[in-house]
Design a protein around this nucleic acid. Sequence first.
DNA 1: CTCCTTACCTAGAGGTCCTAGGTAATACTC
DNA 2: GAGTATTACCTAGGACCTCTAGGTAAGGAG
Lengths: 202, 202
Amino acid sequence: MARAGLTVERVVAAAADLADEVGFENVTVSALARHFGVKDASLYSHIKNVQDLRTRLALLAGEEMIDHIAAAVAGCAGRDALAAFAGAYRTYALKHPGRYAATQIRLDQPLAADSRAMRRTAEITYGMLRAYGLEEPDLTDAVRLLRSTFHGYCALEAAGGFNASRDVRASWDKAVDALHTALEHWPREERREAQRKEKSPS
Amino acid sequence: MARAGLTVERVVAAAADLADEVGFENVTVSALARHFGVKDASLYSHIKNVQDLRTRLALLAGEEMIDHIAAAVAGCAGRDALAAFAGAYRTYALKHPGRYAATQIRLDQPLAADSRAMRRTAEITYGMLRAYGLEEPDLTDAVRLLRSTFHGYCALEAAGGFNASRDVRASWDKAVDALHTALEHWPREERREAQRKEKSPS
DNA sequence: CTCCTTACCTAGAGGTCCTAGGTAATACTC
DNA sequence: GAGTATTACCTAGGACCTCTAGGTAAGGAG
C-alpha cells in the first residue's frame, strides 16, 4: 500500500484549497481524507481535531492575506495606501472565500491569538493611518472602523448580500473614498461640540 | 404519552432562543428535539429540514430586528436618525447574537429574499439617508457602506475581535460620527477630481 | 539487515440529518 | 358520547461525521 505522504503542512494546505471550493464551514476531516484517498482516522496523527485543523488554516490564511496586503501597500502613503490596502483586502477575500472566512474565526489559544500575522496586520494598519495625524484613542477607533467596513463589505458581498442593480466594485471604491474623507475630517471633540451647538436650536 | 404541543411557530421560537444561547451554527434539530423532550424525527413534521428551520429563523429575526430599529428611528432625522439606527442595530446584534447571525445567511428562496422585513429595512435605510441629499447611485453606495460598517463592527465585536484596550461602545460612537461626516462630505466626482489635481504634483 | 519511527489501517462508539411507515392523542362530526 | 379524521409523535434504520484505541507495514538510520 503506497503512502500518500501526508504532513501537517500538506493537510492544512489541502484544507485551505478545500475551504475555497466548498466553504470554510464545510471543511471536514472526512472530505479531506477522501481527497487524499485515505481513511479519516489517518488524519488524526497529523491534526489534533477539527478545531485544531481550523485554527491552523486560520493562521495560514492570515499570513497569506497580510503578505498580499503588505505587498500592495508597500511604497504607498495616505490615500494611495488606503486604496491599495482596501483593494488587496477585497481581492483576497473574494478570490479565497474559504481562507478569508478562516481568518475571521475566534482563535481561543492566546498563543495563536497574537501570531506573527496578527502583529504584522496591526503594524501595517496603524502605519497606514499615521498619515492622517490621528492620535490615540482616535487611532484605535479608526482602525476598528476600517476593519469593520472592509470585513462587513466583503462578508456581505461574498454572501450575495448586494443585488446587482449597482456595480459592486464601484460601490467599494466609493466606500473607500468615503472612508478617506472620514479620516481626513475625523470628528474631534471640538468639532462635535461645535456641530452640536449648531443644531441644538432646531 | 402527553404531547409537547409543537407547532412551527413554537419550534422556530425555541430555535431562536437556542441560537442566542449556543450560537446560530450550533442550532441543531437534535438539540431542539432534546429541548422539547422529543425525538428528532418528530420535528420533521413541522420543518422540512435544517435549511428550512434556519430560513424561518432568519425571517423571524429579520422582522424582530427591523421592528426594533424602526421604533428607535421613529421621529428622528439626519444625524439623530443615524445614531438611533446604529444604536438599535448594535443593541439587537449584541443582545441576540444567534438571531443576528441568522439575519446574515443567504436566503436562496427568491420568495423569502424579498420578504416584508427586507423591504422595510430598505425603506427605512433609504429614508434615513434622504436627509443627506444623495442621489443614485450614491444613495446605494451609501447604504452599502452603512450596512457593511454596521455588520462588520457587530460581527467583529461579537466574535471578540476587538481587544479591551479601548471601550468598544466609545469606538462605535466614533464610527457613527465618522460615517455621518462621510455622508455630509460625500465624495462627488468634482471633489475627487479636485483632490486628485491637488495631490498629483507630489 | 535489523530497528525504529510513523504513515496508515481496522474496529467501534457516539453524534447528526433525514426517510418510511406506524401508533395514539386530539379535534370534528353526528 | 361514539365514530371518524387529523396529526403529533413514535421506532427503525441508513448515511455521514468526529474521534479513540490498538495494530500493521513502509521508509529511513545505523
